[in-house]
Design a binder for these strands. Structure first.
Lengths: 296, 296
DNA sequence: TTACTAGGCATAGAAAAACTAAGGCAAGTG
DNA sequence: CACTTGCCTTAGTTTTTCTATGCCTAGTAA
Protein backbone atom coordinates (compact mmCIF):
# COMPACT_ATOMS: atom_id res chain seq x y z
CA UNK A 1 0.00 0.00 0.00
CA UNK A 2 1.96 2.93 -1.20
CA UNK A 3 1.27 6.19 0.55
CA UNK A 4 -0.42 8.29 -2.10
CA UNK A 5 0.21 11.94 -1.58
CA UNK A 6 -2.80 14.02 -0.61
CA UNK A 7 -1.17 16.25 -3.14
CA UNK A 8 -0.81 19.88 -2.38
CA UNK A 9 -2.44 21.50 -5.28
CA UNK A 10 -1.79 25.01 -6.39
CA UNK A 11 -4.78 27.29 -6.10
CA UNK A 12 -6.57 27.60 -9.44
CA UNK A 13 -4.36 29.40 -11.92
CA UNK A 14 -7.21 31.57 -13.12
CA UNK A 15 -7.89 32.70 -9.59
CA UNK A 16 -4.31 33.87 -9.27
CA UNK A 17 -4.56 35.69 -12.55
CA UNK A 18 -7.73 37.42 -11.43
CA UNK A 19 -6.13 38.47 -8.17
CA UNK A 20 -3.04 39.76 -9.87
CA UNK A 21 -5.05 41.84 -12.30
CA UNK A 22 -7.43 43.23 -9.69
CA UNK A 23 -4.62 44.06 -7.30
CA UNK A 24 -2.45 45.66 -9.95
CA UNK A 25 -5.27 47.69 -11.46
CA UNK A 26 -6.89 48.47 -8.15
CA UNK A 27 -10.39 47.30 -8.85
CA UNK A 28 -12.47 44.34 -9.81
CA UNK A 29 -14.15 46.08 -12.69
CA UNK A 30 -10.87 47.15 -14.18
CA UNK A 31 -9.52 43.62 -13.88
CA UNK A 32 -12.67 42.29 -15.49
CA UNK A 33 -12.12 44.70 -18.34
CA UNK A 34 -8.56 43.58 -18.83
CA UNK A 35 -9.50 39.92 -18.70
CA UNK A 36 -12.53 40.39 -20.95
CA UNK A 37 -15.01 38.91 -18.49
CA UNK A 38 -17.68 40.33 -16.21
CA UNK A 39 -16.80 41.69 -12.79
CA UNK A 40 -18.79 38.89 -11.21
CA UNK A 41 -16.44 36.31 -12.63
CA UNK A 42 -13.42 38.12 -11.26
CA UNK A 43 -15.05 38.48 -7.88
CA UNK A 44 -15.66 34.75 -7.76
CA UNK A 45 -12.07 33.97 -8.66
CA UNK A 46 -10.75 36.26 -6.00
CA UNK A 47 -13.04 34.75 -3.44
CA UNK A 48 -11.75 31.32 -4.40
CA UNK A 49 -8.18 32.42 -3.81
CA UNK A 50 -9.11 33.98 -0.51
CA UNK A 51 -10.78 30.75 0.53
CA UNK A 52 -7.66 28.82 -0.42
CA UNK A 53 -5.49 31.13 1.63
CA UNK A 54 -8.00 31.38 4.44
CA UNK A 55 -7.59 35.14 4.62
CA UNK A 56 -8.87 38.24 2.87
CA UNK A 57 -6.80 39.77 0.12
CA UNK A 58 -9.01 42.81 -0.32
CA UNK A 59 -11.12 44.87 1.98
CA UNK A 60 -14.43 45.65 0.36
CA UNK A 61 -16.00 49.03 0.45
CA UNK A 62 -19.17 50.27 -1.09
CA UNK A 63 -17.16 52.00 -3.77
CA UNK A 64 -14.40 49.70 -4.86
CA UNK A 65 -11.94 47.52 -3.06
CA UNK A 66 -8.55 48.16 -1.51
CA UNK A 67 -5.80 45.66 -1.00
CA UNK A 68 -5.58 44.21 2.46
CA UNK A 69 -2.26 44.12 4.20
CA UNK A 70 -1.84 40.54 3.07
CA UNK A 71 -2.80 41.36 -0.50
CA UNK A 72 -0.38 44.23 -0.53
CA UNK A 73 2.50 42.02 0.45
CA UNK A 74 1.60 39.35 -2.07
CA UNK A 75 0.97 41.53 -5.09
CA UNK A 76 4.64 41.88 -5.96
CA UNK A 77 5.18 38.13 -6.01
CA UNK A 78 2.27 37.45 -8.28
CA UNK A 79 3.05 40.36 -10.54
CA UNK A 80 6.57 39.08 -11.02
CA UNK A 81 5.36 35.55 -11.61
CA UNK A 82 2.90 36.59 -14.27
CA UNK A 83 5.46 38.87 -15.84
CA UNK A 84 7.61 35.82 -16.29
CA UNK A 85 4.77 33.79 -17.62
CA UNK A 86 4.05 36.43 -20.21
CA UNK A 87 7.70 36.61 -21.07
CA UNK A 88 7.75 32.86 -21.55
CA UNK A 89 4.78 32.97 -23.90
CA UNK A 90 6.26 35.82 -25.88
CA UNK A 91 9.45 33.86 -26.27
CA UNK A 92 7.44 30.87 -27.38
CA UNK A 93 5.65 32.99 -29.93
CA UNK A 94 8.74 34.51 -31.44
CA UNK A 95 10.60 31.23 -31.47
CA UNK A 96 7.72 29.55 -33.23
CA UNK A 97 7.48 32.39 -35.76
CA UNK A 98 10.71 34.37 -35.72
CA UNK A 99 9.74 36.48 -38.69
CA UNK A 100 6.47 37.64 -37.23
CA UNK A 101 6.55 41.26 -36.11
CA UNK A 102 3.61 42.89 -34.38
CA UNK A 103 3.42 46.64 -34.27
CA UNK A 104 1.05 48.55 -32.01
CA UNK A 105 0.36 52.12 -33.03
CA UNK A 106 -1.97 54.98 -32.37
CA UNK A 107 -4.77 54.70 -34.95
CA UNK A 108 -3.85 57.98 -36.61
CA UNK A 109 -0.16 57.09 -36.72
CA UNK A 110 -0.95 53.63 -38.03
CA UNK A 111 -2.96 54.97 -40.89
CA UNK A 112 -1.19 58.19 -41.81
CA UNK A 113 2.40 57.69 -40.77
CA UNK A 114 3.05 53.98 -40.64
CA UNK A 115 0.89 52.80 -43.50
CA UNK A 116 2.68 54.87 -46.18
CA UNK A 117 5.98 53.45 -44.97
CA UNK A 118 4.91 49.85 -45.01
CA UNK A 119 5.70 49.20 -48.67
CA UNK A 120 9.25 50.39 -48.14
CA UNK A 121 9.51 48.24 -45.04
CA UNK A 122 8.23 45.18 -46.80
CA UNK A 123 10.67 45.72 -49.64
CA UNK A 124 13.54 45.99 -47.20
CA UNK A 125 12.48 42.93 -45.14
CA UNK A 126 10.67 40.62 -47.54
CA UNK A 127 10.72 37.73 -45.09
CA UNK A 128 9.23 39.64 -42.21
CA UNK A 129 5.55 39.22 -41.51
CA UNK A 130 4.60 42.60 -40.14
CA UNK A 131 1.18 43.11 -38.65
CA UNK A 132 -0.14 46.35 -37.27
CA UNK A 133 -2.73 46.89 -34.54
CA UNK A 134 -4.31 50.28 -33.86
CA UNK A 135 -4.62 50.96 -30.14
CA UNK A 136 -5.78 54.05 -28.32
CA UNK A 137 -3.33 53.47 -25.49
CA UNK A 138 0.22 52.13 -25.54
CA UNK A 139 0.10 48.49 -24.47
CA UNK A 140 2.23 46.85 -21.87
CA UNK A 141 4.65 45.46 -24.38
CA UNK A 142 6.12 42.81 -22.12
CA UNK A 143 2.65 41.40 -21.51
CA UNK A 144 0.69 41.85 -24.68
CA UNK A 145 2.27 40.47 -27.75
CA UNK A 146 3.65 43.51 -29.49
CA UNK A 147 7.24 43.83 -30.61
CA UNK A 148 7.25 47.48 -31.57
CA UNK A 149 5.04 50.35 -30.47
CA UNK A 150 4.61 53.69 -32.20
CA UNK A 151 2.85 56.35 -30.13
CA UNK A 152 2.78 60.03 -29.51
CA UNK A 153 4.48 60.92 -26.25
CA UNK A 154 5.33 64.13 -24.51
CA UNK A 155 8.97 64.90 -24.89
CA UNK A 156 9.61 64.57 -21.21
CA UNK A 157 8.53 60.93 -20.99
CA UNK A 158 11.93 59.75 -19.95
CA UNK A 159 10.95 56.14 -19.50
CA UNK A 160 13.67 53.63 -18.88
CA UNK A 161 12.80 51.44 -21.83
CA UNK A 162 14.68 52.01 -25.05
CA UNK A 163 12.69 54.68 -26.85
CA UNK A 164 13.45 56.05 -30.27
CA UNK A 165 12.21 59.44 -31.41
CA UNK A 166 10.98 59.18 -34.98
CA UNK A 167 9.69 62.69 -35.53
CA UNK A 168 8.60 65.78 -33.70
CA UNK A 169 4.97 66.74 -33.80
CA UNK A 170 4.17 70.08 -35.45
CA UNK A 171 0.80 71.48 -36.38
CA UNK A 172 -0.47 73.94 -38.94
CA UNK A 173 -3.82 74.51 -40.62
CA UNK A 174 -4.40 72.60 -43.85
CA UNK A 175 -7.27 72.40 -46.28
CA UNK A 176 -8.16 71.53 -49.83
CA UNK A 177 -6.68 73.84 -52.49
CA UNK A 178 -10.09 75.19 -53.48
CA UNK A 179 -10.84 76.27 -49.93
CA UNK A 180 -7.41 77.83 -49.51
CA UNK A 181 -8.39 80.54 -51.96
CA UNK A 182 -10.74 81.92 -49.31
CA UNK A 183 -7.97 82.15 -46.74
CA UNK A 184 -5.82 85.17 -47.39
CA UNK A 185 -5.21 86.18 -43.79
CA UNK A 186 -5.31 84.13 -40.57
CA UNK A 187 -8.35 86.11 -39.56
CA UNK A 188 -10.22 84.49 -42.41
CA UNK A 189 -10.16 81.26 -40.37
CA UNK A 190 -13.08 82.64 -38.42
CA UNK A 191 -15.28 82.24 -41.48
CA UNK A 192 -14.73 78.59 -42.38
CA UNK A 193 -15.73 75.27 -40.82
CA UNK A 194 -13.08 73.76 -38.56
CA UNK A 195 -12.35 70.06 -38.56
CA UNK A 196 -11.23 68.61 -35.22
CA UNK A 197 -10.01 65.31 -33.94
CA UNK A 198 -11.91 64.42 -30.79
CA UNK A 199 -8.82 63.37 -28.84
CA UNK A 200 -6.81 66.42 -29.98
CA UNK A 201 -9.41 69.03 -29.17
CA UNK A 202 -6.89 71.58 -28.01
CA UNK A 203 -4.90 71.67 -31.24
CA UNK A 204 -6.65 74.74 -32.56
CA UNK A 205 -6.29 76.70 -29.35
CA UNK A 206 -2.61 75.84 -29.16
CA UNK A 207 -1.96 76.92 -32.73
CA UNK A 208 -3.87 80.17 -32.39
CA UNK A 209 -1.93 81.01 -29.27
CA UNK A 210 1.51 80.11 -30.56
CA UNK A 211 0.91 81.66 -33.98
CA UNK A 212 -0.40 84.78 -32.26
CA UNK A 213 -3.60 84.76 -34.20
CA UNK A 214 -6.57 86.48 -32.65
CA UNK A 215 -10.00 85.81 -33.99
CA UNK A 216 -13.10 87.86 -33.29
CA UNK A 217 -15.18 84.75 -32.92
CA UNK A 218 -14.72 81.00 -33.13
CA UNK A 219 -16.44 79.39 -36.07
CA UNK A 220 -18.46 76.18 -36.15
CA UNK A 221 -16.52 72.96 -35.98
CA UNK A 222 -17.12 69.27 -36.48
CA UNK A 223 -15.11 66.53 -34.84
CA UNK A 224 -14.01 63.08 -35.86
CA UNK A 225 -12.97 60.25 -33.63
CA UNK A 226 -10.38 59.13 -36.14
CA UNK A 227 -7.90 61.65 -37.41
CA UNK A 228 -7.71 59.94 -40.75
CA UNK A 229 -11.41 60.59 -41.26
CA UNK A 230 -10.83 64.26 -40.60
CA UNK A 231 -8.01 64.26 -43.14
CA UNK A 232 -10.31 62.67 -45.72
CA UNK A 233 -12.91 65.30 -45.09
CA UNK A 234 -10.31 68.06 -45.39
CA UNK A 235 -9.31 66.64 -48.78
CA UNK A 236 -12.95 66.68 -49.74
CA UNK A 237 -13.03 70.40 -49.02
CA UNK A 238 -15.27 70.12 -46.00
CA UNK A 239 -13.26 72.58 -43.95
CA UNK A 240 -9.94 73.45 -42.43
CA UNK A 241 -8.11 70.86 -40.37
CA UNK A 242 -5.38 71.46 -37.87
CA UNK A 243 -2.82 69.31 -39.61
CA UNK A 244 -0.12 67.32 -37.88
CA UNK A 245 2.83 67.77 -40.16
CA UNK A 246 4.09 64.22 -40.00
CA UNK A 247 0.62 62.91 -40.74
CA UNK A 248 -0.30 65.09 -43.68
CA UNK A 249 3.07 65.40 -45.37
CA UNK A 250 2.03 63.10 -48.15
CA UNK A 251 -1.13 65.04 -48.80
CA UNK A 252 0.83 68.27 -48.79
CA UNK A 253 3.38 66.95 -51.24
CA UNK A 254 0.87 65.49 -53.65
CA UNK A 255 -1.21 68.64 -53.50
CA UNK A 256 -4.42 67.16 -52.15
CA UNK A 257 -3.99 69.45 -49.17
CA UNK A 258 -2.30 72.81 -48.91
CA UNK A 259 -1.17 74.93 -45.98
CA UNK A 260 -2.55 78.46 -46.36
CA UNK A 261 -0.40 79.84 -43.51
CA UNK A 262 3.21 79.09 -42.87
CA UNK A 263 3.18 79.19 -39.07
CA UNK A 264 4.23 75.76 -37.86
CA UNK A 265 3.79 75.20 -34.14
CA UNK A 266 5.41 72.40 -32.11
CA UNK A 267 3.01 70.58 -29.83
CA UNK A 268 5.71 69.41 -27.47
CA UNK A 269 5.06 65.82 -28.39
CA UNK A 270 7.09 63.37 -30.42
CA UNK A 271 6.36 60.26 -32.37
CA UNK A 272 8.15 57.62 -30.34
CA UNK A 273 8.87 54.00 -31.12
CA UNK A 274 9.74 51.40 -28.53
CA UNK A 275 10.97 47.85 -28.66
CA UNK A 276 9.75 45.11 -26.40
CA UNK A 277 12.48 44.43 -23.91
CA UNK A 278 13.56 40.84 -23.76
CA UNK A 279 13.20 40.18 -27.45
CA UNK A 280 16.15 38.09 -28.47
CA UNK A 281 15.83 38.79 -32.17
CA UNK A 282 17.61 41.42 -34.20
CA UNK A 283 14.75 41.92 -36.60
CA UNK A 284 12.62 44.29 -34.49
CA UNK A 285 15.54 46.66 -33.95
CA UNK A 286 16.39 46.52 -37.64
CA UNK A 287 12.84 47.34 -38.57
CA UNK A 288 12.77 50.19 -36.12
CA UNK A 289 16.01 51.56 -37.56
CA UNK A 290 14.61 51.23 -41.06
CA UNK A 291 11.50 53.05 -39.95
CA UNK A 292 13.57 56.12 -39.12
CA UNK A 293 15.02 56.23 -42.59
CA UNK A 294 12.08 55.11 -44.68
CA UNK A 295 10.26 57.88 -46.45
CA UNK A 296 6.60 57.69 -47.11
CA UNK B 1 -15.91 54.92 -31.72
CA UNK B 2 -13.04 53.91 -29.57
CA UNK B 3 -10.74 51.31 -31.02
CA UNK B 4 -11.31 48.27 -28.86
CA UNK B 5 -8.25 46.10 -28.72
CA UNK B 6 -8.57 42.66 -30.32
CA UNK B 7 -6.82 41.76 -27.11
CA UNK B 8 -3.88 39.50 -27.26
CA UNK B 9 -4.80 36.80 -24.90
CA UNK B 10 -2.38 34.57 -23.16
CA UNK B 11 -2.68 30.93 -24.14
CA UNK B 12 -4.73 29.00 -21.58
CA UNK B 13 -2.89 28.86 -18.29
CA UNK B 14 -3.67 25.20 -17.82
CA UNK B 15 -2.18 24.41 -21.19
CA UNK B 16 1.06 26.04 -20.13
CA UNK B 17 1.06 24.12 -16.90
CA UNK B 18 0.56 20.87 -18.76
CA UNK B 19 3.38 21.65 -21.14
CA UNK B 20 5.72 22.61 -18.35
CA UNK B 21 5.03 19.42 -16.45
CA UNK B 22 5.29 17.15 -19.48
CA UNK B 23 8.47 18.81 -20.67
CA UNK B 24 10.09 18.79 -17.26
CA UNK B 25 9.16 15.20 -16.49
CA UNK B 26 9.75 13.98 -20.02
CA UNK B 27 6.43 12.33 -20.66
CA UNK B 28 2.74 12.90 -20.85
CA UNK B 29 1.86 10.11 -18.46
CA UNK B 30 4.24 11.40 -15.86
CA UNK B 31 2.81 14.87 -16.19
CA UNK B 32 -0.69 13.45 -15.92
CA UNK B 33 0.36 11.72 -12.76
CA UNK B 34 1.76 14.88 -11.26
CA UNK B 35 -1.31 16.86 -12.20
CA UNK B 36 -3.68 14.15 -11.02
CA UNK B 37 -5.50 13.82 -14.36
CA UNK B 38 -5.53 11.32 -17.18
CA UNK B 39 -2.90 11.42 -19.90
CA UNK B 40 -5.59 12.28 -22.41
CA UNK B 41 -6.27 15.54 -20.65
CA UNK B 42 -2.61 16.51 -20.70
CA UNK B 43 -2.32 15.59 -24.34
CA UNK B 44 -5.22 17.85 -25.15
CA UNK B 45 -3.73 20.75 -23.25
CA UNK B 46 -0.43 20.38 -24.98
CA UNK B 47 -2.09 20.24 -28.33
CA UNK B 48 -3.93 23.45 -27.48
CA UNK B 49 -0.65 25.18 -26.70
CA UNK B 50 0.90 23.88 -29.88
CA UNK B 51 -2.05 25.19 -31.84
CA UNK B 52 -1.66 28.57 -30.19
CA UNK B 53 2.01 28.70 -31.08
CA UNK B 54 1.49 27.20 -34.48
CA UNK B 55 4.36 24.79 -34.02
CA UNK B 56 5.07 21.45 -32.39
CA UNK B 57 6.55 21.39 -28.92
CA UNK B 58 7.05 17.63 -28.80
CA UNK B 59 7.84 15.02 -31.35
CA UNK B 60 5.71 11.97 -30.78
CA UNK B 61 7.08 8.50 -30.94
CA UNK B 62 5.43 5.20 -30.32
CA UNK B 63 7.06 5.02 -26.92
CA UNK B 64 6.87 8.40 -25.37
CA UNK B 65 7.51 11.89 -26.56
CA UNK B 66 10.64 13.97 -26.81
CA UNK B 67 10.88 17.72 -26.75
CA UNK B 68 11.15 19.37 -30.10
CA UNK B 69 13.82 21.96 -30.63
CA UNK B 70 11.27 24.63 -29.94
CA UNK B 71 10.03 22.92 -26.81
CA UNK B 72 13.57 22.50 -25.60
CA UNK B 73 14.26 26.18 -25.85
CA UNK B 74 11.02 27.14 -24.16
CA UNK B 75 11.11 24.73 -21.25
CA UNK B 76 13.44 26.88 -19.18
CA UNK B 77 11.24 29.93 -19.47
CA UNK B 78 8.12 28.12 -18.40
CA UNK B 79 9.87 26.25 -15.64
CA UNK B 80 11.15 29.52 -14.22
CA UNK B 81 7.75 31.14 -14.53
CA UNK B 82 5.99 28.35 -12.71
CA UNK B 83 8.70 28.25 -10.10
CA UNK B 84 7.88 31.84 -9.38
CA UNK B 85 4.20 31.20 -9.34
CA UNK B 86 4.69 28.44 -6.81
CA UNK B 87 6.91 30.69 -4.78
CA UNK B 88 4.23 33.35 -4.81
CA UNK B 89 1.58 30.94 -3.58
CA UNK B 90 3.86 29.64 -0.85
CA UNK B 91 4.47 33.17 0.28
CA UNK B 92 0.75 33.79 0.25
CA UNK B 93 0.19 30.71 2.35
CA UNK B 94 2.77 31.52 4.97
CA UNK B 95 1.73 35.14 5.18
CA UNK B 96 -1.87 34.15 5.64
CA UNK B 97 -0.92 31.63 8.33
CA UNK B 98 2.57 32.40 9.61
CA UNK B 99 2.39 29.81 12.36
CA UNK B 100 1.50 26.97 10.10
CA UNK B 101 4.37 24.55 9.54
CA UNK B 102 4.08 21.61 7.21
CA UNK B 103 6.52 18.77 7.53
CA UNK B 104 6.97 16.08 4.90
CA UNK B 105 8.57 12.89 6.10
CA UNK B 106 9.15 9.32 5.10
CA UNK B 107 6.28 7.32 6.59
CA UNK B 108 8.54 5.35 8.87
CA UNK B 109 10.36 8.44 10.04
CA UNK B 110 7.09 10.28 10.55
CA UNK B 111 5.71 7.58 12.77
CA UNK B 112 8.75 6.32 14.62
CA UNK B 113 11.15 9.23 14.74
CA UNK B 114 9.13 12.39 14.35
CA UNK B 115 5.98 11.42 16.16
CA UNK B 116 7.69 10.77 19.53
CA UNK B 117 9.33 14.18 19.27
CA UNK B 118 6.16 16.08 18.47
CA UNK B 119 5.06 16.60 22.09
CA UNK B 120 8.40 18.20 22.89
CA UNK B 121 8.13 20.32 19.79
CA UNK B 122 4.64 21.47 20.62
CA UNK B 123 5.69 22.36 24.13
CA UNK B 124 8.58 24.40 22.82
CA UNK B 125 6.49 26.17 20.15
CA UNK B 126 2.96 26.31 21.51
CA UNK B 127 1.81 28.75 18.84
CA UNK B 128 3.05 26.75 15.91
CA UNK B 129 0.56 24.64 14.01
CA UNK B 130 2.67 21.74 12.87
CA UNK B 131 1.22 19.25 10.44
CA UNK B 132 2.98 16.19 9.14
CA UNK B 133 2.52 14.41 5.84
CA UNK B 134 3.94 10.98 5.11
CA UNK B 135 5.41 10.76 1.61
CA UNK B 136 7.30 7.96 -0.06
CA UNK B 137 9.48 10.38 -1.98
CA UNK B 138 10.93 13.74 -0.96
CA UNK B 139 8.76 16.46 -2.48
CA UNK B 140 9.93 19.44 -4.44
CA UNK B 141 9.77 21.76 -1.50
CA UNK B 142 9.71 24.96 -3.49
CA UNK B 143 6.68 23.72 -5.37
CA UNK B 144 4.64 21.65 -2.99
CA UNK B 145 3.72 23.31 0.20
CA UNK B 146 6.14 21.82 2.71
CA UNK B 147 8.35 23.86 4.96
CA UNK B 148 10.51 21.09 6.36
CA UNK B 149 11.33 17.66 4.98
CA UNK B 150 12.72 14.72 6.90
CA UNK B 151 14.01 11.87 4.75
CA UNK B 152 16.63 9.22 4.61
CA UNK B 153 19.42 10.15 2.22
CA UNK B 154 22.69 8.60 1.26
CA UNK B 155 25.51 10.44 2.92
CA UNK B 156 26.91 11.65 -0.36
CA UNK B 157 23.82 13.58 -1.38
CA UNK B 158 25.60 16.89 -1.40
CA UNK B 159 22.68 18.91 -2.64
CA UNK B 160 22.98 22.65 -2.65
CA UNK B 161 19.99 23.27 -0.45
CA UNK B 162 20.60 23.67 3.26
CA UNK B 163 20.48 20.15 4.65
CA UNK B 164 20.80 19.21 8.28
CA UNK B 165 21.89 15.75 9.37
CA UNK B 166 19.72 14.64 12.27
CA UNK B 167 21.06 11.15 12.84
CA UNK B 168 23.00 8.40 11.15
CA UNK B 169 21.18 5.23 10.21
CA UNK B 170 22.33 2.06 11.94
CA UNK B 171 20.71 -1.34 11.91
CA UNK B 172 20.68 -4.30 14.23
CA UNK B 173 18.27 -7.20 14.81
CA UNK B 174 15.58 -6.60 17.39
CA UNK B 175 12.73 -8.70 18.74
CA UNK B 176 10.40 -9.10 21.66
CA UNK B 177 12.11 -10.12 24.92
CA UNK B 178 10.41 -13.52 24.92
CA UNK B 179 11.75 -14.36 21.50
CA UNK B 180 15.24 -13.14 22.42
CA UNK B 181 15.62 -16.09 24.76
CA UNK B 182 15.83 -18.37 21.69
CA UNK B 183 18.65 -16.35 20.21
CA UNK B 184 21.91 -17.20 21.89
CA UNK B 185 24.16 -17.05 18.86
CA UNK B 186 23.76 -15.22 15.55
CA UNK B 187 23.40 -18.60 13.88
CA UNK B 188 20.11 -19.01 15.73
CA UNK B 189 18.67 -16.35 13.44
CA UNK B 190 18.27 -19.05 10.85
CA UNK B 191 15.54 -20.63 12.94
CA UNK B 192 13.17 -17.70 13.48
CA UNK B 193 10.78 -15.75 11.29
CA UNK B 194 12.26 -12.58 9.80
CA UNK B 195 10.27 -9.40 9.53
CA UNK B 196 11.13 -7.17 6.60
CA UNK B 197 10.14 -3.76 5.35
CA UNK B 198 9.28 -3.99 1.68
CA UNK B 199 11.30 -0.94 0.69
CA UNK B 200 14.30 -1.93 2.79
CA UNK B 201 14.59 -5.49 1.55
CA UNK B 202 18.35 -5.51 1.61
CA UNK B 203 18.69 -4.64 5.29
CA UNK B 204 19.16 -8.22 6.37
CA UNK B 205 21.73 -8.99 3.72
CA UNK B 206 23.68 -5.89 4.63
CA UNK B 207 23.69 -6.69 8.32
CA UNK B 208 24.71 -10.30 7.81
CA UNK B 209 27.56 -9.20 5.60
CA UNK B 210 28.85 -6.41 7.81
CA UNK B 211 28.40 -8.39 11.01
CA UNK B 212 30.18 -11.33 9.39
CA UNK B 213 27.38 -13.70 10.18
CA UNK B 214 27.04 -16.77 7.99
CA UNK B 215 23.86 -18.74 8.06
CA UNK B 216 23.42 -22.24 6.70
CA UNK B 217 20.05 -21.28 5.27
CA UNK B 218 17.79 -18.26 5.13
CA UNK B 219 14.60 -18.61 7.14
CA UNK B 220 11.10 -17.65 6.14
CA UNK B 221 10.26 -13.98 6.19
CA UNK B 222 7.23 -11.75 5.97
CA UNK B 223 7.28 -8.21 4.72
CA UNK B 224 5.35 -5.08 5.55
CA UNK B 225 4.87 -2.02 3.44
CA UNK B 226 5.04 0.18 6.48
CA UNK B 227 7.99 -0.15 8.79
CA UNK B 228 5.89 0.82 11.77
CA UNK B 229 3.69 -2.22 11.16
CA UNK B 230 6.75 -4.40 11.20
CA UNK B 231 7.80 -2.83 14.48
CA UNK B 232 4.39 -3.54 15.97
CA UNK B 233 4.61 -7.14 14.88
CA UNK B 234 8.06 -7.43 16.36
CA UNK B 235 6.72 -6.15 19.68
CA UNK B 236 3.99 -8.75 19.40
CA UNK B 237 6.65 -11.42 19.21
CA UNK B 238 5.96 -12.34 15.60
CA UNK B 239 9.60 -12.54 14.66
CA UNK B 240 12.90 -10.76 14.40
CA UNK B 241 13.06 -7.38 12.72
CA UNK B 242 16.09 -5.65 11.31
CA UNK B 243 15.79 -2.59 13.49
CA UNK B 244 16.82 0.89 12.46
CA UNK B 245 18.37 2.24 15.62
CA UNK B 246 16.88 5.70 15.41
CA UNK B 247 13.45 4.23 14.80
CA UNK B 248 13.33 1.67 17.56
CA UNK B 249 15.25 3.48 20.28
CA UNK B 250 12.11 4.13 22.26
CA UNK B 251 11.10 0.49 22.11
CA UNK B 252 14.57 -0.56 23.16
CA UNK B 253 14.62 1.82 26.09
CA UNK B 254 11.17 0.89 27.36
CA UNK B 255 11.94 -2.78 26.96
CA UNK B 256 9.24 -3.70 24.48
CA UNK B 257 12.02 -4.70 22.11
CA UNK B 258 15.49 -5.97 22.85
CA UNK B 259 18.59 -6.39 20.75
CA UNK B 260 19.90 -9.94 21.11
CA UNK B 261 23.19 -9.17 19.31
CA UNK B 262 25.32 -6.12 19.80
CA UNK B 263 26.61 -5.72 16.22
CA UNK B 264 25.39 -2.35 14.97
CA UNK B 265 25.92 -1.77 11.26
CA UNK B 266 25.80 1.62 9.52
CA UNK B 267 23.70 1.64 6.36
CA UNK B 268 25.51 4.58 4.87
CA UNK B 269 22.37 6.68 5.05
CA UNK B 270 21.45 9.56 7.30
CA UNK B 271 18.23 11.11 8.48
CA UNK B 272 18.32 14.49 6.80
CA UNK B 273 16.12 17.50 7.32
CA UNK B 274 15.79 20.33 4.84
CA UNK B 275 14.17 23.72 4.89
CA UNK B 276 12.24 25.19 2.02
CA UNK B 277 14.40 27.86 0.48
CA UNK B 278 12.74 31.20 0.22
CA UNK B 279 10.85 30.95 3.47
CA UNK B 280 11.03 34.34 5.09
CA UNK B 281 10.12 33.13 8.55
CA UNK B 282 12.41 32.15 11.38
CA UNK B 283 10.07 29.54 12.76
CA UNK B 284 10.96 26.66 10.41
CA UNK B 285 14.66 26.98 11.16
CA UNK B 286 13.94 27.18 14.87
CA UNK B 287 11.84 24.06 14.69
CA UNK B 288 14.52 22.27 12.76
CA UNK B 289 17.11 23.28 15.34
CA UNK B 290 14.83 22.11 18.12
CA UNK B 291 14.34 18.83 16.29
CA UNK B 292 18.03 18.11 16.60
CA UNK B 293 17.95 18.55 20.35
CA UNK B 294 14.56 17.11 21.18
CA UNK B 295 14.63 13.64 22.65
CA UNK B 296 11.86 11.22 22.06
C1' DT C 1 -34.08 64.89 2.25
C1' DT C 2 -34.26 62.27 -1.89
C1' DA C 3 -32.88 60.49 -5.95
C1' DC C 4 -29.00 58.73 -8.49
C1' DT C 5 -24.67 56.45 -9.50
C1' DA C 6 -20.67 53.53 -8.97
C1' DG C 7 -18.75 49.46 -7.50
C1' DG C 8 -19.11 45.23 -5.61
C1' DC C 9 -21.83 40.85 -3.74
C1' DA C 10 -24.74 36.68 -4.32
C1' DT C 11 -27.22 33.35 -6.84
C1' DA C 12 -29.12 30.69 -10.44
C1' DG C 13 -28.87 29.19 -14.82
C1' DA C 14 -26.26 28.88 -19.22
C1' DA C 15 -22.10 28.25 -21.66
C1' DA C 16 -17.65 26.50 -22.10
C1' DA C 17 -13.88 24.04 -20.72
C1' DA C 18 -11.85 20.09 -18.87
C1' DC C 19 -11.85 15.47 -17.93
C1' DT C 20 -12.64 10.45 -18.45
C1' DA C 21 -13.27 6.28 -20.79
C1' DA C 22 -12.61 3.41 -24.45
C1' DG C 23 -10.61 1.92 -28.68
C1' DG C 24 -6.62 2.11 -31.68
C1' DC C 25 -1.85 2.21 -33.09
C1' DA C 26 3.16 1.61 -33.28
C1' DA C 27 7.43 0.04 -31.46
C1' DG C 28 10.00 -2.32 -28.30
C1' DT C 29 10.23 -6.72 -25.18
C1' DG C 30 9.88 -11.57 -23.59
C1' DC D 1 4.15 -13.81 -31.89
C1' DA D 2 1.81 -12.12 -28.13
C1' DC D 3 2.39 -8.48 -24.66
C1' DT D 4 3.35 -4.17 -22.84
C1' DT D 5 4.02 0.65 -22.93
C1' DG D 6 2.92 5.17 -24.06
C1' DC D 7 0.43 8.07 -26.66
C1' DC D 8 -3.57 9.61 -29.78
C1' DT D 9 -8.44 10.39 -30.85
C1' DT D 10 -13.24 10.84 -30.10
C1' DA D 11 -17.53 10.96 -27.78
C1' DG D 12 -19.89 11.89 -23.86
C1' DT D 13 -20.04 13.52 -19.22
C1' DT D 14 -18.68 16.21 -15.38
C1' DT D 15 -16.93 20.31 -13.62
C1' DT D 16 -15.72 24.83 -13.93
C1' DT D 17 -16.45 29.29 -15.41
C1' DC D 18 -19.16 32.91 -16.95
C1' DT D 19 -23.23 35.88 -17.40
C1' DA D 20 -27.36 37.94 -16.00
C1' DT D 21 -29.96 39.71 -12.58
C1' DG D 22 -31.25 41.78 -8.41
C1' DC D 23 -29.51 43.71 -4.12
C1' DC D 24 -26.69 46.51 -1.09
C1' DT D 25 -23.84 50.51 0.48
C1' DA D 26 -21.91 54.98 0.38
C1' DG D 27 -20.81 58.92 -1.93
C1' DT D 28 -22.88 62.79 -5.05
C1' DA D 29 -26.23 65.70 -6.90
C1' DA D 30 -30.68 67.87 -6.90
Amino acid sequence: MSVKPPRHRLPPLNAMRAFEAAARLGGISRAADELCVTPGAVAQHIKALEDWAGAALFSRHARGVTLSDLGQRCLGDFEAAFDQLHMATQNLRIRAAPNSIRIAALPSLAQLWLSPRMPGLRARFPDARISVAALEQPPNMEREGYDISVFLETNADGSASPAEVLAADHILPVCAPALAAQLQHPADLADVLWLRDSIWEQDWALWLEKAAVELPNLPDSVSFSLYSLAVEEACNGAGVLMGHKALVERHLSDGSLVAPFADVVPTGKVITARLRSGDQRDLPAQILAALRLTRA
